[in-house]
Amino acid sequence: MIRILVVDDQQMVREGFAALLAAQSDMHVVGQASDGVDAVAQTRSAGPDVVLMDVRMPRMDGLSATRHITSSSQARVLMLTTFDLDEYVYEALRAGASGFLLKDAPAADLVHAVRVVAGGEALLAPAVTRRLIEDFVRRPSFTGVKPATLRALTARETEVLRLIAQGLSNQEIAAALVVAEQTVKTHVGRILGKLGLRDRAQAVVVAYESGLVTPGS
């Protein structure tokens, strides 16, 4: 059973999401929160597997709440936003969020997203990922310097990381490299372990911040 905390400052939106998810046979809504402060407190007390997190809220926004939650618990955060290029989304991924979804996405997409994130995967659409990264690399702080940590990866693991950063799924990576999907899963696990990352979302961030992959490559 997937335990879910729904966080949104709009009551009707919050209750709508909660009702939808509670109706799934493999999901249980353990709580609802109207801001980041309450979200952090309820994560600590209720122990959800997935936190469905709004970005813009009073008292503490979704970005700050995500930092608190991912640094102090095993809960995975799925960000909700009304914009496909919300100014906070990239920072939320850096803070440890496992992906994000537009609020106007179909109900089936939301249910699927929760299951994906609960399963330890990241929810990053390739097109949105590219746009987020293109925005990031235009920032003055971007250096594109490859950190020493990537040297721990083998040539094949580096290749797999590059494909992850391009938004490919395990199945697509397997097809591109002509290997079994289980082999790709093994490589992904080793990449995350060697780099000390929670999931594929953080792997994408590392790949672009390090300059391993650049927009358009």
Rank of each mutant, 00 (worst) to 15 (best):
D86W: 13
A125W: 07
G120F: 14
G62Q: 13
Q171H: 13
A207I: 05
G196H: 11
T158E: 15
S73N: 09
R156G: 05
A148I: 12
L150P: 01
A155P: 07
I133T: 14
A155V: 12
L20A: 04
A155D: 14
K194D: 05
F83Y: 14
V114Y: 15
P126R: 11
S73D: 07
E91T: 11
A39I: 01
A118I: 12
A174G: 14
G196P: 00
S73R: 03
S217H: 06
I133Y: 09
M53G: 10
Y88C: 03
I4P: 14
A165W: 01
L52Y: 00
P140R: 07
A65R: 04
L20I: 12
D49E: 15
A107V: 01
V55D: 02
V213H: 01
R151L: 09
T214I: 13
R190T: 11
S71T: 08
A107Y: 02
R94T: 15
K194A: 13
F142G: 03
L5I: 09
Q32S: 10
V205W: 08
V206C: 10
A175I: 13
V30Y: 02
L110M: 09
V188T: 08
T154K: 08
Y88L: 13
V206A: 02
A22H: 04
F83W: 05
G31N: 07
A107G: 00
M60T: 05
L93K: 03
R130G: 12
T154S: 15
M1R: 08
Q24E: 15
R76K: 10
S72W: 13
S34E: 14
R94C: 15
L85W: 11
A176C: 08
L78H: 01
E159I: 02
L195S: 12
T129L: 15
V213G: 04
G47C: 10
G167C: 04
V114F: 14
E91G: 15
P215L: 04
E157L: 10
E91M: 08
L192I: 01
A92E: 03
E15K: 06
G193T: 06
R131W: 03
M57Y: 04
V7C: 07
I164H: 08
L153I: 10
R151H: 11
G47L: 03
I173Q: 03
A23G: 04
G62K: 11
A33D: 03
V213T: 01
T183M: 10
E209I: 07
A122I: 04
T82G: 13
H187P: 07
I133N: 13
A176W: 05
V179H: 07
T81M: 05
V40A: 02
D9S: 00
E159M: 07
